[in-house]
Amino acid sequence: MLIKTRGIVLSYLKYRETSIIARVYTEQLGVQSYVVNGVRKAKPPGRIALFQPFTLLELVAYVARGSGGLTRLSEFRCAEPFQTLPYDVQKGSVVLFLSEIVGKAVREEEQNEPLFRFLHDSILAFDRQTAGSENFALGFLLQLASYLGFGIASGAELTDQVIMAGHSPVAAGSTGPATLRLREFEHYFDELLRTPVTSTIPNGRVRHELLNVLIRYYQLHVEQLGEIRSLDILSQVLN
């Protein structure tokens, strides 16, 4: 059976000589893995670009009979051509970082229209954003947590959980320097939750620390999130 759906590319792996296995978050079926034949051939050129992280696609796909099955795409095309993401190094690093987290945190093979709409609309908004893109990843992760079931209402709520779970460099309940540093971050998270456009985050170093806190928070709630390897690349670019 074939199904027509929109999809958001999360990642891909090389498969055989000219093909890939693409992991895609689809509007109708959740996370799916597809064999895509021939996209790494020299001709026609450029088809592999359609499977870069967060590319928005329209798909006609075969439906796997069981959960977790590997199937194929019958047709695919770009649904929303990007204006800036493929050409902006800073934005490209943000996309690489966020797609790694989304790929690890979102695993359900079932329809979730609100989550798909959030991802789709956020990606398009980021592509068109002309100012303030350095804080986009922080705001995105705070909003994504709500769609995944562990959203917060304040910065204090976030830091309390990180400290009490022992993910802080100091013991839970301690008032040592590391815990005090986390408390200093609470107002930045409050700003990102309420007025992200006017956030007063001073520099890339603080932004990197805030991202580390958010990753620790995600590790509390997402089983086997593991190390986010693209964070170092993003931090270098944001600095």
Rank of each mutant, 00 (worst) to 15 (best):
Thr200Arg: 15
Pro202Leu: 13
Glu75Pro: 01
Thr130Ser: 09
Val24Ile: 12
Leu96Gln: 13
Thr18Phe: 11
Leu13Pro: 06
Pro114Leu: 04
Glu110Met: 11
Thr18Gln: 04
Gly38Tyr: 10
Asp127Ala: 00
Thr71Val: 04
Leu56Asn: 04
Pro177Asn: 15
Phe136Leu: 06
Ser122Leu: 02
Ala171Ile: 14
Thr130Gly: 03
Thr84Ala: 10
Gln129Arg: 10
Leu13Val: 03
Val63Gly: 00
Val9Lys: 13
Glu17Trp: 03
Ser99Leu: 14
Leu10Ser: 02
Val162Asp: 10
Ser133Glu: 11
Glu134Met: 03
Gln111Pro: 11
Lys14Ser: 03
Val170Thr: 05
Arg216Gly: 15
Tyr147Trp: 13
Ile233Asn: 09
Gly155Asp: 12
His221Phe: 01
Met164Val: 10
Leu73Phe: 05
Asn112Glu: 11
Phe97Ile: 01
Gly68Cys: 05
Phe116Gln: 00
Ser168Cys: 08
Arg128Leu: 09
Asp121Pro: 00
Ser168Tyr: 07
Gln143Cys: 10
Gly46Ala: 09
Gln83Trp: 01
Pro114Asn: 05
Pro44Arg: 09
Ser99Asn: 14
Arg23Thr: 15
Phe51Thr: 10
Arg6Asp: 12
Ile101Leu: 08
Leu59Pro: 00
Leu29Phe: 07
Ala156Trp: 09
Asp232Gly: 14
Gly151His: 01
Leu29Cys: 06
Phe136Trp: 15
Ser99Phe: 06
Gly226Cys: 07
Glu75Leu: 11
His167Ala: 03
Val222Trp: 02
Gln224Pro: 07
Arg77Glu: 11
Ala42Thr: 10
Pro45Gln: 12
Tyr62Lys: 07
Glu209Leu: 14
Ser67Trp: 00
Val237Gly: 02
Tyr217Arg: 07
Gly30Glu: 06
Ala145Ile: 07
Ala156Asp: 04
Asp160Thr: 12
Thr55Ile: 05
Lys4Cys: 00
Gln236Val: 13
Pro169Ile: 01
Val106Lys: 03
Leu142Val: 02
Thr5Met: 13
Arg23Asp: 06
Gly46His: 03
Gly204Met: 14
Ile233Cys: 02
Gln224Cys: 11
Asn203Ser: 12
Arg6Ala: 15
Glu110Lys: 14
Ile228Leu: 11
Gly92Cys: 00
Ser93Asn: 07
